[in-house]
Computed example of a mutant assay.
Amino acid sequence: MTVVGTRVRQPGVLRLGLARTGYEVRTYFRERDAVVFIFAYPIIMLAIFATVFGQNGATVGPEPGIPFAQYFLPGMLATGIMLSSFQNLAIGIAVERDDGGLKRLHGTPLPPASYFLGKTGSVLVTSVVQTALLLAAAALLFDVPLPTSGTAWATFAWVFVLGTAAGTLCGVAFSSVPRSGRSASAVVTPIVLVLQFISGVFFVFNDLPPWMQDVASLFPLKWMAQGMRSVFLPASAESWEVSGSWQHGATALVLLAWAVAALVVGVRTFRWQRRDDG
């Protein structure tokens, strides 16, 4: 029995954000083609590079060297985070805006903060699942040794969290760049591919031209890959870096800077409706 005049307490922003996360995750996994591509892509690329470059026991670096599968795993982890966060959101939000979904959602009582919490929660869930699958494939199929120390896993955790945060915020901010949902993939995908080529994902970073290394250093993917290398490569590999160091401090600062900058830009430029919709 409802008492007339009784004020119904509305759910809080966090509770609505958690509910929105569940909705976003369910919607995400219904897009099976996108899920297969984003989850399988890093595993397939790791298999290709490990097979092609690792023939006849070839290794990376000075003797005795590191197996190619082990060397390329950190880059694939970084690119997986980028696919799940930046690429997924930059394209997905642009499509939602183009088909009018964002405009309709903005007209409901759902707080904007809960919408963005839902997107963030969805990225965290998908990134964790993707990372777990990639680590399992690397260990079981390619005998890549996983870290055994708590310090290494702690480093993995903060690189993962900061990388996911930077990628998520950049994806939200960049979603306003494509002029339509149809053009979003054509705008976002080439950027992701170029960053992978220059950031030490597909090639040994030290082997890239110096100017390319300098350009890559401006973007978060290079720092995510370098941070992951510090976790999954032996301590001796630190001397192979351009700076001769893992640069954990610089990695944290760059990822934080990108996250903050993307947040500022996103707050100023995010649109709930198409440009031609008033």
Rank of each mutant, 00 (worst) to 15 (best):
I198M: 13
P178V: 06
S185T: 14
A138T: 01
Y23L: 15
L83Q: 09
M212T: 15
S230M: 04
F49I: 08
W240S: 07
P147E: 06
W223L: 12
S149H: 06
L14W: 13
G61H: 10
G227S: 04
V215A: 15
L110Q: 09
V25N: 02
D99C: 10
I66F: 13
L195Y: 00
F53L: 15
G200R: 05
A58Y: 03
D33M: 15
E24P: 12
W240Y: 12
Q213K: 14
F203D: 05
L193F: 11
R271A: 08
S127A: 15
I81V: 15
W223M: 07
V187L: 13
G227I: 00
L140C: 12
A90S: 14
G22P: 09
S199A: 11
S183T: 11
M82P: 00
Y71S: 01
Q130F: 02
N206C: 01
G150Y: 10
F197W: 04
L146D: 08
Y41L: 15
L124G: 03
A138C: 13
T164P: 07
S176N: 14
V254F: 11
P209N: 10
L146K: 10
V192T: 13
L140K: 12
V201N: 04
E238P: 06
T189C: 01
Y41D: 05
G12C: 06
G167F: 01
G75P: 10
T131L: 11
A69T: 01
A257F: 04
G278V: 04
F37P: 09
E96I: 01
A235H: 11
S245P: 11
T148Y: 06
V129F: 09
K103Y: 08
V25D: 02
L83V: 04
F160Q: 02
P64Q: 10
V128N: 11
I91K: 01
R7F: 02
E31Y: 14
Y71K: 06
E24R: 09
G57P: 09
T6N: 11
M228Y: 14
P209A: 09
R229I: 05
T269Y: 12
T251W: 09
F174M: 13
F39Q: 09
L77D: 00
S114K: 04
R7S: 06
S85W: 00
L133P: 14
E63Q: 11
W223K: 06
A173N: 04
P111M: 08
F53T: 00
F202K: 04
S122N: 14
T189V: 13
W246M: 11
E238A: 15
Q10R: 13
S85L: 04
F39D: 03
V172L: 15
S84V: 00
V8D: 08
A47F: 05
I191Y: 07
A58L: 12
S230F: 00
R271N: 03
R268C: 04
F37D: 01
A157I: 02
Y28V: 02
S217K: 13
A154I: 10
A139D: 08
V264P: 12
M212W: 10
A69C: 07
G5F: 02
S149V: 05
A250N: 08
P42S: 02
F142N: 06
Y23M: 13
S245A: 15
T126W: 02
P64D: 05
V177D: 01
E63R: 13
A113K: 10
F160D: 02
F205A: 10
T164M: 15
F156W: 14
L77K: 01
T269D: 11
A235D: 14
A166M: 04
S175V: 00
